[in-house]
């Protein structure tokens, strides 16, 4: 995979997430996908032995999408608006499963001037499944020393 191909894929994923097209986003994941957000004070860990903010297997990722589409997910109803900026994309390992890293800034907007910026880096494992690029693992590592005023990671980061 070239950097341009990796960028196209990440931009497509970002567009789906910003548009809250969550079912279409789910279709980009492998059947054994994981979605991880480490605790801010333990960015390098193992979710089996370290407390994370999010450590979903595919079952809980699907549950998360079901929840986020439900108006009873009160923290995201009405949905927050998000706008993702992805840059510094690097293809780290191109043979077999592809390891891609990128920087992100995700702006989140809610009513009453609740504006926040989630800044950090992504680590992806991408896999070719029947000729299509699929996400086997995506990890969003925040730079903030603590979540603090960001409050929660209630949307798909």
């Amino acid at each position: 995979m070239t950097r341009a191909e990796a960028e196209d894929f990440l931009y497509h994923e970002a567009a789906l997430l910003d548009a809250w097209q969550l079912d279409e986003w789910l279709a980009l994941l492998t059947e054994d996908a994981r979605y991880l957000v480490p605790s801010n004070d333990a960015p390098e860990g193992d979710p089996a032995s370290t407390l994370y903010t999010i450590a979903d297997d595919i079952h809980r990722i699907r549950g998360r999408v079901t929840r986020l589409k439900d108006p009873n997910a009160h923290v995201e109803f009405p949905h927050s608006r998000t706008r993702r900026m992805i840059s510094n994309v690097r293809v780290i390992e191109a043979g077999g499963d592809v390891q891609v890293e990128a920087n992100f800034v995700v702006h989140r907007f809610r009513r009453n001037e609740q504006v926040s910026q989630f800044v950090g880096r992504y680590r992806y494992t991408l896999r070719n499944v029947a000729g299509k690029t699929r996400i086997a693992r995506r990890e969003a590592i925040l730079d903030a020393q603590e979540l603090g005023s960001l409050g929660a990671v209630s949307f798909i980061l």
Binding site: S49, Y52, T53, A55, R64, A152, V153
Partner: peptide
């Protein structure tokens, strides 16, 4: 830890709605 994250914390399925 897995059971923790389903309910509790800022990425859980419950705590963020408590905060809201």
């Amino acid at each position: 830890l897995d059971s923790f994250l389903t309910f509790y914390g800022p990425g859980g399925f419950a705590t963020p709605d408590d905060v809201e």
